[in-house]
Amino acid sequence: MASGQKAARVGEEVWKTRVDKVNAELVTLTYGTVVAQLCTDYEYDYVQVNQQLDKMGYNIGMRLIEDFLAKSNIGRCGNFRDTAEMISKKVGFKIFLNITPTVTNWTADNKQFSLLFDENPLADFVELPDDGRAQDELWFSNIFCGILRGALEMVQMSIEARFVSDVLRGNDVTEMRVTLLRYTEDEMPPDDE
């Protein structure tokens, strides 16, 4: 895949030369304290914690897209497959978290794919509470879903993202499912001719 390789090169280049770094453990611990605070605030109602994480991610995503665009200097993606390569796999996650989740499991209509996280800095050194519920109800890294949704919405793509498995729940892989709902193109002229 030429576009995939190009994206990978861009990602590596940006990561090496354009990105100010920070100690990874500070980020991991900070995310931990955010989740812990939510668990306290919502009295361990994990469904609400998931929602709140998604909401926080959405707020982040809508702003984070500017950082991504300003630093990577890339153009608009031609199609959703390019988007998956570019934003999720090679450049997006790469320049923020220095990881490259695998893009896979495309549906035939090219509107749905999975991201497989081999590494997940947010969940490093994490164990969910042994309360008989957390492993069934909490999606610890749910902030990612909101970030993707918020970021893509700003570039006229309406998507849905959700985790379907997580090593923290005892699954063997951490997998997020991403579905393209529609292109919004809110600023474009009407499409009806």
Partner: peptide
Amino acid sequence: MKGVYERYADYVCK
């Protein structure tokens, strides 16, 4: 302009 955009991403959006 690119420099302005980067600063906007840093000091406004964050």
